[in-house]
Design a protein around this nucleic acid. Structure first.
Lengths: 289, 289
DNA sequence: TAAGATTGTTGCTATATAGCAACAATCTTT
DNA sequence: AAAGATTGTTGCTATATAGCAACAATCTTA
């Protein structure tokens, strides 16, 4: 770990012409400056400046060292300033992901409006039902169904979604209506990305693993299979609301329906969230309904 | 005083890909690295890198900061290297001063030989009888008659010179020979740069202030005045030896002659003398006789 | 699948450090 | 010419700091 502070002190001493002014500028004591310079000269094995009690003069080595170091403090300041301006306002590239249908139907319109208000933000919006590794793949934000527990992420509830367990009239006519969770094992269960269904029994969250001969990470495919009577599926309200209303699909086991299958904003853990992330999150929460 | 070490730690972490390797490279503990990064992020008010326990990834702010800072460690290293090579061997510009005649007659020939052996040294040799301010005017070395006491300089004896008090035969015939120091006040005293003469009485150094109607900072002028019988002068042996031998000038008060009126190498105080200074001093002392 | 290895973080403490005050050496001013 | 102001240096001490060890979270390997 090299002696950066001594270098900065030296450069400042040269520019100010004496130790006292340099100390004042750097907001440290002159004794500190004095010791830093002495130490620097020791490390370099070279006298950098000759000093009387009143005046200083650069040695040839000091002149060389100064010429090579004078730009460094400015460079660091400029680097810090860039970050500072980045912190002032939401700007930059924003990479986010969301499940396909929910994204297309709800998130994309909100984000597009957001971009109209924030022309300095570039959006990179990946719609996929794959659960991506945020940090690994450099995402700023994911919108996930159901909260995830992960030591390196934080999450924030975006809105509440109900997942409806349902089947087509045709399927019910053939297989009957299940009345308990246990009865599900006798039915054709159509699974999505997760290999369990979420219910609530006596106020307790309950994850039920069901055997399945059908899986798809596409809600659209799942919905189609359900409508064609291939089995029972648990689908978010925005897929099935219209079919439940029309009576094409029948809600099942509603007494066990989990009330808060939330939609979450998930982002990498950070003590200092970027303005762009904050702005996007606020805007989404504000405009989701 | 800005946080240079944290910046260096950050750059190293980015380049090494993790905290541990960066710590090893910088020869500090990982805990130190961890705290430096945390502290840097706090100061900048921005998360620079997202970290799982196993992997890190730059945030947009981190990427920007890295791009702006990556060259700084190299720059400092290179500055240090320049000084290091400067320390290896005597090189560079060497500015020195000496009294005119002594310089012309003794020092210049030695320095010219020195330059033949050291083509990398550029000499700036000022011959003057003015007592220059070494530090103020940027001199590396002065050659002075008589040691000087000064808190901001060091000195080293180059050789011994005897200052002969003498007068011309013609002057002695007219004014007689002084036999005591007190008698000098009755004589015409020709003064050089200093306004006193140096003697020894009972082993004690003794500076005698003499009234004078003639002063010159030029030894040549003083010698000429002495030879023409204008008065008594105290002159270094290299001015008068030939005339004392020929009998043209008569030595006076030899029992009071100060034995060690030395010639001194005087240079700005420094804990780490430059190789060029050391080389010049050694060479002069080696070759003065 | 489980045990071991490796990662970054945090509490505790020995160590290093920075500031205060006193000092010596000039320079300035009256 | 003398007193006061200002400079850089140094001893002392309160404070900050860096390393150790323990830890939690993950990845690797058998």
């Amino acid at each position: 770990m090299r002696n950066w502070e001594a270098m900065e002190a030296f450069v400042e001493v040269v520019q100010q012409g004496n130790f006292s002014k340099a100390a004042a500028k750097l907001k440290v004591s002159t004794s500190h400056i004095s010791r830093l310079i002495t130490q620097l000269e020791s490390q370099l094995g070279s006298t950098l400046l000759f000093r009387t009690t009143r005046r200083i003069r650069l040695s040839e080595a000091g002149e060389l060292y100064y010429q090579n170091c004078r730009s460094l403090p400015e460079a660091l300041s400029s680097a810090e300033e860039v970050i500072s301006t980045l912190n002032q306002t939401p700007v930059g590239n924003f990479k986010m992901t969301c499940s396909t249908t929910f994204g297309e139907r709800y998130i994309a319109p909100i984000m597009n409006n957001f971009l109209l208000d924030h022309p300095d933000i570039e959006l990179d919006f990946h719609l996929t039902n794959r659960t991506v590794d945020l940090i690994e793949e450099g995402y700023d934000l994911a919108i996930r169904m159901g909260a995830m527990k992960d030591s390196s992420h934080l999450s924030r509830r975006l809105c509440n979604r109900v997942e409806h367990l349902c089947a087509s009239r045709q399927y019910i006519d053939q297989h009957g209506i299940p009345h308990t969770l246990a009865e599900l094992s006798k039915h054709q269960c159509l699974l999505g990305s997760k290999n369990h269904w979420l219910f609530q029994e006596n106020g307790q969250r309950k994850e039920i693993k069901v055997a399945s001969q059908y899986r798809s990470n596409s809600g659209v495919a799942l919905l189609d299979a359900t409508r064609k009577g291939l089995g029972i599926a648990q689908l978010p309200d925005y897929y099935v609301n219209e079919y439940l209303e029309s009576g094409e699909l029948i809600p099942l086991l509603t007494q066990y329906q989990y009330p808060y299958s939330g939609v979450w904003l998930v982002y990498p853990k950070s003590l200092h969230p970027s303005p762009k992330l904050q702005a996007v999150c606020e805007y989404l929460i504000e405009n989701i309904d």
